[in-house]
Amino acid sequence: MRTDLDPRGAEATALDPMAVASYAVRRLKGETDDTFTLELQPVDGAARFSFAPGQFNMLYVFGVGEIPISISSDPLKPKTLWHTTREVGTVTRAMRQLKPGAVLGVRGPFGTHWPVDECEAKDVVIVAGGIGLAPLRPALYRILAQRDRYGRVVLLYGARTPADILYRSELERWRARFDLEVYATVDRAMSGWRGNVGVVTGLIGRAPFDALNTVALVCGPEVMMRFTVQELQRRGVRAQAIHLSMERNMKCAVGFCGHCQFGPWFVCKDGPVFRLDRLREWLGKWEV
């Protein structure tokens, strides 16, 4: 028996939150040594995948398992789906071996999204660390598609070394734009590197934005986000205007499995994007 799985949106997900849709790998692009991007298309080529920037999908590799990966493609181009991930476990290792045409299971989209609409008429400062740039890229696409609706847009990006900088050519293209300020920094570099060396939080102090009229979108390792929050608040950005994307162990993505709890929150459905004032009392506590 062969079942055609209709690729579906949130409605079908609500009916059976474990139902997966079949997607074929169109391309697998190596980004850095240990990161890669999967470009997926629904097996049923006519289908569109609607999502909001910051949401994630559960990706299933046949016979191996399922993991959450944020969506890093352009929400305005719903015919292909990009997922950038790091090769860290059995599922991502298996993913990296996939050839074009291989079929994956996709469940989603799940979770909360970046408040892109709330950013209108405001300065937007995006602070990303490492692979944390991946879930922020859809937000940037959305903003750049309607650039005139926003004030200054600043991207501050920190990576480990120059070789670990994600989406490098895209960052170069963005840097060349006059309507987007891009500042990147790395934690370590060999002599000859002409960019910045130092932690990404060091970029916040001098970045050009009006702290009182700014929305900040932050994603990276939790420690990096905690220090980023301190710097943003020192600049005068209010907690209600700071949004973070949290990472926890997500298995079911719909609040049934309990794994992703962070204090009172289920990161899978109450997050992954949280407004800082909702998280603040839990951030920085040990082993929450």
Partner: peptide
């Protein structure tokens, strides 16, 4: 402008510890 604080590590070459800029 921009200044790199560097240290030479024999066998690895000069490493940049930090860069400093305007202000």
């Amino acid at each position: 402008g921009k200044v790199a604080i560097e240290v030479d590590v024999p066998g690895r070459g000069a490493m940049i510890i930090q860069t400093l800029g305007e202000g």
